[in-house]
Design a protein around this nucleic acid. Structure first.
Lengths: 225, 225
DNA sequence: TCCAAAATGTGAGATATCTCATATTTTAGT
DNA sequence: ACTAAAATATGAGATATCTCACATTTTGGA
């Protein structure tokens, strides 16, 4: 993990990642001179469950996972974070009881400000508060939909939806281990279901991932709506 | 369902339900002259998924369930609402895409104000916005914990936790049909698990519900933490 | 008080999913 | 280029949970 000032970061971000910072810092406008930029590598902890959370982040680039380790040693992926999502907002609000691990999947870039600065400014800023309400509310709805579907339908249609969701240029290419944790099934069972989809001709294994028959997958996934 | 003005309601609430309104209207102070009180009977719809939502409610008394009907005809209980919880706040924030049914379980009493009044006042009130952020954030954490546990552990320990949570004066007395929907298992399987708990001596059927060995249930449920 | 609807209860067989053991292939770091 | 770790893959048997069919009991209204 490397840290940069906003000034240092501007050049790097624009050159190497084609990110224009101006689009992203609106929400931090009132605390702009406290903003720094951090670049994380694959598997770096952005937040460690066991540590005190000292900064409020916004993910600019990359994907991160929030995950939780159970008493029995197993773990669950709770959420995949995508660009423009916040990290630490529930701690800022003073309601997070059981912090979770946030881990970079591939390279990740975050804006961040110190938590104590956020507390004395953002918590009184109606614009920020409305934005954060909407953000958390949307997550609540997403999570509700996801978990209701998860508990009501078997893996096959959920996997179909997941493949469609993750596919990039018509190719699904996620790690089965991650998918199994996210869909909360055993690795073995996930593989079994992948085979079913293959045998039914809905997906085909290629060198770089799985290609698929979009219409058939969509039809399978449509029962979730 | 019956509606009352705040003035009309004061007497009824204090006399019949021992509710002192003053404790509850703080959050609506700025729109106090638009507040009305509604009393719902068992199985009344407080909100109907198919209708436009025109009021923002706060539940004062009773229990209500939020539930959703699946494409395949089955249904899931998403959440049990308890006193001091809001109904319609996600609609107020403009982010609710798929409204759900909210149904009274037994008698329910709500404060409410028209949604359009809420939009022009509460959405700019930092105190309200902070309160609503915390409220929704807490729900997000509850729901996350619940669904992660739900998908990772079998019914037995979850049922133990549920019995402890619902028990009143050492007696569990919920409808099995409701419990099955909430814990997202078939009625048949729920009964099967109840029998297991009975045969292992953790619970005992009484005339008015189930009594239980608290320590044993707590030990069973403790693996969820 | 009576009836219809809801809730409770049980059996049997089907299916989804898990656990564990083990082998091969791919990936990342030095 | 080599090696250890991670990811992929498969089989076999166990378990959790579901579906359906059916009988009995309780409950809420007219």
């Amino acid at each position: 993990m490397k840290n940069y000032t906003l000034e240092e970061a501007k050049g790097i971000l624009l050159k190497d990642f084609n990110i224009d910072l101006h689009e992203h810092i609106a929400i931090f406008q009132s605390v702009i001179n406290h903003v720094t930029v951090s670049i994380f590598d694959n598997r770096d902890h952005i937040v460690r469950a066991s540590d005190t959370i000292t900064r409020l982040h916004i993910l600019l680039y990359g994907t991160a996972k929030i995950s939780l380790t159970h008493e029995d040693g197993g773990s669950s992926i709770i959420y995949f974070l995508k660009p423009n999502e916040m990290i630490g907002e529930l701690t800022l609000l003073g309601i997070e009881q059981n912090p979770k691990d946030v881990i970079a999947i591939g390279k990740c870039i975050c804006l961040s400000i110190p938590m104590d600065i956020a507390e004395i400014t953002l918590l009184h800023d109606p614009q920020f508060l409305l934005a954060v309400s909407r953000y958390i509310g949307t997550k609540l709805l997403d999570r509700t939909w996801f978990s209701v579907k998860q508990q009501h339908y078997s893996l096959k249609p959920r996997l179909a939806a997941h493949i469609l969701l993750c596919a990039c240029d018509g190719l699904y290419n996620e790690k089965h281990t991650q998918t199994a944790e996210y869909l909360a099934v055993s690795y073995r069972h996930l593989l079994h279901t992948f085979r079913e989809l293959r045998e039914e001709g809905l997906i085909t294994k290629e060198k770089k991932g799985y290609s698929f028959n979009r219409e058939s997958l969509e039809q399978l996934a449509s029962q979730l709506d």
